[in-house]
Computed example of a mutant assay.
Amino acid sequence: MLQKSITKVIAGQGGSYGLKSALLCSSWFFQFGVKTKQFFDSTSFQKPSRVDAPVVCIGNIIAGGSGKTPFLQRMLTDLKTISPEHIAVVSRGYKGQYNKAADVLHLNKERDLTAQLCGDESYMLYKNFPSHGFFVSKNRYKGALRAVCRGAKLVFLDDGMQNNTLFQDMRVVVLHAERLFGGEGVQKGFFLPRGPLRDFPSSLKKANFIVVNHACSEEKIERANKALEHYSTCPIIYTQMVKQGFFDESGRVEMAANSRIGVFCGLGSPKSFIDCLKEEGLDIATSWFLQDHEKANVEALDQFALKAKTMGCKFLVCTEKDWVKLIKREGYALPLCFIKSELAIVRGQDAYATLLNSVKTLVKERV
């Protein structure tokens, strides 16, 4: 219950004065810790370790919901001139059981893998790109080193902008158009745990490219352009999520525009997911929001399905990230399906082409 209350405060959805005050005090300590770490990183004699392959970091400055994973998927899809077996992704497997292990987990067919073991995002990427290399390790340098030993000529570091143990040849920072700096619109938000901010906006000066996701209007694009001028002069790529359809275990699911549905998800920012469903003309009768990366409990999901059925719902809909975590996908009072979306470039196509070419050049220079 406390965790849910904290999540609502971080998302700006209310909360008691006492809880907000307590979290604000904690956020001051977090902010001080970030500032202290940046100071020692800039003055330390110990340089970040290098591996024998270029490292491209896909990072952010807020916790959850910016769109790092969809953008990484887009890049993996578009880097067609590099063999998949030569591309590796290293992540810490957030919320996975292996996140606390000291070793490196190589995701492959020889292991009995689950989203609970390696983290939902790592597992989803592995299922969508089985020919690429995926490695989970809380020590990013060890993970990248293992990837190179397994033949990687290009390493993507998933969510490693605040990590200084591994040298990064290129940094791509993904922002959310509706809360660029953690607050509403272009306002600076609070640091964790009072708000979603995990780094100073000034850190954007370290970025080689900036991606602004959920840029679904010209107003948001122009607003972001103006705000980012104060922090960076690097190329900016504007993107948004585009629905590809609804799917279940058997394949595509046809759903009428006015279908009555129940929805559940464990996202840092579920608003974009809900907005997407509403844009499809779907009637959302009831919703169940879990913590970011939280798995839906089978018994609780069964009760939610029964509740949704009594409200006239025909389906339960979740995100692809929630789908891969489900242990049981059939046998409920209502059929389950997930919405599959892909990231589309809406402005900055030339900047995106430059990004892809820059990555290819990094690989050629190391070969």
Rank of each mutant, 00 (worst) to 15 (best):
A308V: 10
T43M: 11
T165Q: 15
F32N: 10
I210F: 03
V253H: 08
Q116M: 07
L343I: 09
I210H: 08
I58F: 01
E365N: 13
P84W: 04
S341R: 08
F181S: 11
N163D: 14
F32V: 10
R171T: 10
F45M: 13
M161F: 15
I339M: 15
T43E: 03
C276M: 12
K360H: 07
M311P: 02
V298W: 06
R171P: 00
M311N: 06
R179C: 00
A11R: 12
I87E: 01
L267Y: 03
C25G: 08
F45Y: 14
K8R: 15
L105E: 04
A22H: 00
F45K: 14
K95Y: 07
L362W: 04
I327P: 01
L157I: 05
Y238N: 00
F209C: 08
E178K: 08
D350M: 13
L2T: 10
C57A: 13
S272C: 09
F190Q: 13
I274G: 00
R223N: 11
V363P: 12
P84Y: 07
Y94E: 00
M311V: 01
E121R: 06
D283N: 13
F135K: 01
K109T: 11
P235V: 00
R111S: 14
G96S: 05
M241F: 03
S44P: 10
T233V: 01
S358L: 03
V155G: 06
F129P: 06
E184L: 05
T286I: 14
F29L: 14
S269Y: 15
K321W: 06
W323C: 08
K220P: 02
L204N: 07
V51G: 09
K220R: 13
A227G: 03
A215N: 07
A351K: 09
E280K: 09
G15N: 05
S5N: 12
R92V: 05
L117W: 01
A257C: 13
A101G: 04
G64D: 03
M1F: 03
F289T: 12
M311S: 11
P48R: 09
E299K: 14
T233D: 15
F264W: 11
K309E: 10
H132Q: 10
D159S: 01
M124F: 00
D120M: 04
G93A: 08
C313F: 09
R329I: 02
L23R: 05
F289N: 12
N258G: 07
V136K: 03
V174D: 02
C234Q: 05
T319I: 07
V253N: 05
M161R: 09
M124H: 02
V34A: 10
P130T: 06
D158V: 11
T286E: 12
N225G: 05
N128V: 02
H176K: 11
S44T: 15
S131I: 00
G64C: 09
P201Y: 06
I58P: 00
G195V: 03
D302L: 06
L113T: 07
G262Q: 01
V324W: 05
L277F: 07
P235M: 04
N163M: 00
A152S: 07
K80R: 08
S91F: 01
D350I: 01
V136R: 03
V263G: 04
F247G: 09
K205I: 04
G12P: 12
A285S: 14
Q38I: 07
G33L: 08
L290R: 07
M311T: 02
C337F: 02
F338M: 02
E178G: 02
